[in-house]
Design a protein around this nucleic acid. Structure first.
Lengths: 244, 244
DNA sequence: AACTTTATTATTGTCGACAAAATATGATAT
DNA sequence: ATATCATATTTTGTCGACAATAATAAAGTT
C-alpha cells in the first residue's frame, strides 16, 4: 500500500495500522514521551507515525475508551491530564473492584491459581530487591507488579473485572513512570505483597481483602507524598509540574 | 456539506456526525433494532445513517469502549452478543462497584443527596405501580430506575464509578429491553428499592451495601428465569433466541 | 462425491482532498 | 493602551476512491 507496508510486516507489529499506532501511542503516553495534557494534533501525529488520519483517529478513539486520551468535540484529542484527584480516583476504583474480586478468586481458585500467585510473587520480590534503576529494569518491575495483581484476581472469572483491572493498572503505571523513578520503598513493597499472597493462599478472604485495600491506601499515600514534592522520574524535564 | 446538514441542524442532534450517529447506534443497539451479534457492515450503515465511513468507524470505536459493540481485526464490527454468562458478569461487576461506592456515598452524602434519593425513589415507585406496557412507558421506567441507582452513588465522588455505572446500566437495559417486556415483579421492585433507600438515608452502610448486593442477586435470578424461558419483549421477533 | 486450488466477489483498511469550525492575527475605534 | 470586530490561518470533521484482506463461488483433481 504505502512504503512502510513491508517495513511493518517485517517488524513484530500487528497487522493493521490502527492496532500498531494504538500500541505505539499507548506506550508513548504511559512513558511520558507524550506529555500529560499535550494536544494531539492530527497533522503532527501524521508525520510522527507516518500514516493518514483515519487509523490515527480510530486509535485515538480507542485510547479514549482506555482512559489514556480525552476528546472534546471540535477541539480534538489530548493526552489525559494527571492530578492528585485523578490518582486518588484510580486507587478508589481499583479498591472497589479488587477487594471484591479477590474474595471470589479465593473461593474459586484452584491449584493453578495458587502456583500462579507463588510464581508471580517470587518474580516481583526478586525484581524489587534487585536495585537496577535504568528504564528497562523499571519497566520490567512494572510488568511483574501488574502480573502479580492480575494473577491474584485471575480466578474470579469476570472478564469485566480483568479488563477494568488492566486499564486501571495502565493508568497507575503512567503516574509511576512519570513521577517516580527508582525511589521505591522496597522492603514495604515486598512485605505488603507477601502478606496479601499469604492471606490469599490461606483462603482468608476477609484478611486478604483488607490487606489489599490497605495496600491501595498505603500506595496512594506514598504517591501523594512524591507528587507533593513533585519529584520527577529520571529523564523527564523537571520544568513545570505535569500536574494540573 | 451534504443534504442532511441543515436537516441535522434543525433537529436536536449534537454538532458532529460522529456524536449523532453514536447516539443513534447506541439507541438502536440497546433497543434491539440492531440484533445481538448482528454484523455491522460499513456499507449498510452508510446507507442506513446516510453518512461516510469515517464518522461511522469512529462512532463504532467508541461504542466498543462502551461495551455495546465488538471488533475483530479485518472482520469488522458486530453488535455485542448476549448470553447468560455475560448477564451474570454485568451483575457481578455492578455489585463490586456499587456495594463499595454506596458506603462512601453514605459517609459523604449531604442534604441534596438525601433529597435526590427521596425524589428518584418516588418517581420510580410511581412508574412501577403505573401499569402501562407500551414502549415509551417502559423506556421511562428504565430511565427512572437508572436515575435512582445513579443518585444512590452520586455522593461517592468518583468519576470512574459514575462512568462505569452508566455503562453497566446501559448494558443491563439492553437485556431488559430485548428479553423482558412489561412482566416486572412490581411489588418486589418497589420493596427492594424502598429498603435500600431507607438504609442509605438511615446511614446504615452495612445494611445498605448488603441490600444492594442482594438486589443484584435477586434481579439476576429473575432475569435468568426469563432468559431460560426465553420470553422475548413484545415486538421482537420470537424466532430463534438472541442468546449465544 | 469430496477435497484442494483458483477466481471472483464482498468488506475492511487507508489515503488525500476539501469543508466547517476554532484559533490566532491584525486593524480600527474609543 | 485596551477592547472589539473583521480577516487569515490552523485544525478538526467528512467524503469518496482505492488497496488489501477475507469470504464466497467455481473449477479441477484424486
Amino acid at each position: 500500500m504505502t512504503a512502510n507496508m513491508e517495513l511493518r510486516a517485517t517488524a513484530e507489529a500487528p497487522g493493521t495500522f490502527i492496532e500498531a499506532v494504538q500500541q505505539r501511542l499507548r506506550e508513548d503516553i504511559v512513558s511520558g514521551r507524550l506529555a500529560p495534557r499535550e494536544k494531539l494534533r492530527l497533522a503532527e501525529l501524521k508525520s510522527r507515525y507516518e500514516m493518514g488520519t483515519s487509523p490515527l483517529r480510530e486509535a485515538l478513539s480507542r485510547l479514549v475508551g482506555e482512559g489514556l486520551v480525552t476528546f472534546e468535540s471540535n477541539k480534538g484529542y489530548r493526552v489525559r491530564g494527571l492530578s492528585k484527584e485523578d490518582l486518588a480516583d484510580i486507587a478508589y476504583m481499583r479498591t472497589a473492584v479488587e477487594t471484591f474480586a479477590i474474595r471470589t478468586a479465593i473461593e474459586r481458585g484452584g491449584m493453578e491459581w495458587e502456583s500462579g500467585i507463588v510464581g508471580s510473587l517470587h518474580a516481583l520480590v526478586a525484581l524489587t530487591e534487585d536495585t537496577a534503576t535504568d528504564r528497562a529494569s523499571l519497566d520490567a518491575w512494572n510488568v511483574a507488579h501488574d502480573r502479580f495483581h492480575e494473577t491474584l484476581l485471575s480466578a474470579c472469572g469476570s472478564s469485566r473485572v480483568f479488563e477494568t483491572q488492566r486499564q486501571l493498572a495502565e493508568q497507575h503505571n503512567r503516574y509511576r513512570r512519570i513521577f517516580m523513578g527508582d525511589n521505591l520503598p522496597r522492603q514495604l513493597i515486598i512485605d505488603e505483597h507477601r502478606n496479601i499472597a499469604e492471606a490469599a493462599l490461606a483462603r482468608d478472604a476477609d484478611r486478604a481483602a483488607a490487606l489489599l485495600g490497605r495496600h491501595m491506601v498505603v500506595t496512594s499515600c506514598f504517591y501523594a507524598k512524591v507528587l507533593a514534592g513533585e519529584k520527577l522520574a529520571p529523564g523527564s524535564e523537571p520544568a513545570s509540574s505535569a500536574l494540573e
